[in-house]
Each structure stands twice: as C-alpha cells, then as structure tokens.
Amino acid sequence: MSDFEKLKNIDIEELYSKTFIARKHLRAILNKDFSKFDRLKALGFVKIIEREFDFDLSELKKEIESYFSQKSEKSVKDLENIEKKELNSNKSFQKSKKFPIFALVIIAMLFIALLFFTQQKSLTTQNLDKKDDKEKMFLEKNETSNKNEDKNETQKSIESKKSDENKTFKQEDLEEKSLLKAKSTKEEKPKEAVLPSIILIPKQKIWVGIIYLDDYSKKNYLTSSAIELNTTRDQLIVTGHGYLEIEKDGNVTEYSDKNRLRFIYKAGDLEKIDLQTFKKYNRGKSW
C-alpha cells in the first residue's frame, strides 16, 4: 500500500490535530482537487503532511506540478488570444476615427482664423474711438481747468485722509488676526497617540498568521512561545486553534476553543471577528 493510500485511511481529525491544516484543505488534497490552491500552497501542505507522518508523497507532488503546469500554459494562451482581439479592435477603431479627426482639425483652424480676424477688427475700432475721446477730453480740460482747480485740491485732501484711515484700520485688523492666530496655536496642541501592548500567549504549540492591512504583506509562526504584535500597523490575525491567552496592557483574556480564532487590530483596538468579516478586510480571502 502506497503512503498516499495510508494517508487516505487516516481520520481527518487526526490529520488536522498534527498539521493544523484546515479540514477543507485536507479533504481537497485527499481528493486531489488542486483547484482550491495555488502551486506553492498545495506543495507546502503536502510537505507538512510528509514531515508530520514520515510519508513519501513524491507522486502526489508530481501530480500537483503537472496540474499547475497545464493550468499556466492555458492561461498564457488565453492571454495571447485576448491581446490579439484588443489589437485588432484598436486598429479598426483608429481607421474609423481617422477622417472625423481630420475634419475636426480643419474646422478648429477655420474657427481660430475667424476669431483672430474679428478681434483685430474690434481692436482697430476701439483705437479710433479712443483717439476721438482723447481729443474731446483735451478741449474740455482746457476750458474748465481754472474752474476745477480748487475742487481738485479739496478732493485730493479728502482722498488722502481716507487713505490714511484705511491704512490704520488694516494695520489694526492684521495685528488682531495675528494675536488670535498665536493664541489658537498655543491652545490647540496635538495629542500624541498611545499605542497598546498586545501579546499572544499560546497554551500549546500553535500556528499564527498575520496580514498587515497597509500593504497586505503576511507573516506566520509555528511556535509555543509568546508573540508580541506590532501595534503601529493595522492587521488581521488568525490562529490554528483557540487555546491561548491575549494580554493587552496587562489585562489577560483567556480562550479555550479547538477551532480557529480570528481578530482585527485597528486604530489601537483588538476585536474578535468571524470568517465573513475577516474575508471582507482581506479582499475575499480566508488567508
């Protein structure tokens, strides 16, 4: 009997308790349903099973390599067909648009020429009108210069007083705004955020996976030691089982669950969540 046949005869709960691989993934491997994984994940699960049970699953690994090799070739062909269709579509579109674009360019050039001609004509008319106005103003000015001399002096005096008053008012307004701004700056001092200290303390050997939400990079551990979280980054946390304690700023919360636990750490708060919420924050993925 091959090692793979021996593996199929082992109870799924025993497989899970030794490997901490999700039961649905174990069933998929036993049924050779590799569509649920990528190549690296499938091979990684098989290597864990080999290590924990001292099995030789070389034939199973060859089948995985063959499956993903065929899948990759199919994806390349599909991509080439899509690129060819897009190229043909772009060529057809460019041919159909060539004449309308040329016509639009001609119309735009004619419109610009007409606009330029109209502006030149308008400027010429305005210059002639200004010349006539200047001549009239010169004659009127000479006739009334003596009468308006006293009036102009009085007007200048009034305008000078108004200008001085406006300058004084603007200066006082600027000084008042400057004082208010300085006072507001002193009163509004930003408060520094205080980040919590969070430590995961397993009761037995545990697998822990961490996904950072700022760039979706991942970390995972298989350990019996305590793990301190990096609380400067928002993150998702998933554990292989629920036999652990979580210490947050000296306060300890104890869990005793054979199933996986999932948490989200965001804006300084750690919250236990279900699988649906985990997938929502992880772009639809369970890990």
Rank of each mutant, 00 (worst) to 15 (best):
I107H: 05
K85N: 13
A108Y: 03
K98W: 08
Q70A: 14
K97R: 15
E86A: 09
E135G: 02
N127Y: 05
A113N: 08
T144M: 10
Q70W: 13
K77M: 05
I101N: 09
A108M: 02
D150I: 04
K85S: 13
K74F: 02
F111R: 06
K134P: 01
F93V: 08
L128F: 11
V105I: 09
E143L: 12
N146V: 09
K84S: 12
Q94L: 11
S89I: 10
K147E: 11
L128W: 08
Q126A: 10
Q70E: 12
E73V: 00
I158F: 14
E73N: 00
P100T: 01
E73H: 00
D133K: 13
E140A: 13
K85V: 12
I107P: 06
L123Y: 12
L79Q: 05
N148T: 03
F117H: 15
K141T: 11
E149L: 15
Q155R: 09
T124I: 08
N88H: 09
L79D: 01
V76Y: 05
S122A: 06
I112D: 00
F138E: 15
Q119G: 10
L114Q: 05
M137A: 10
I112F: 00
N88G: 09
A108T: 04
L104G: 00
E153H: 12
N146Q: 04
L87S: 14
I107W: 03
K95S: 03
F99T: 03
F117E: 14
F117T: 14
L104Q: 00
V76R: 03
E73A: 00
K74P: 07
E149K: 15
M137Y: 11
T118P: 07
T125F: 01
E83T: 09
K121W: 00
K97V: 14
S72R: 04
T118F: 12
V76L: 07
I158R: 14
N142I: 03
K84G: 04
Q119Y: 12
Y67Q: 01
F111W: 03
F111N: 06
K130H: 05
N127M: 04
I106G: 10
D133F: 12
I101K: 11
D150H: 08
N148Y: 03
K74D: 10
V76D: 03
A108P: 05
E135M: 05
F111C: 05
F117D: 14
K95M: 07
K131C: 01
K71M: 01
K156N: 13
S75T: 03
Q120Y: 06
K91P: 13
K151S: 13
T125K: 01
K156T: 11
K84F: 09
K85I: 10
S96W: 12
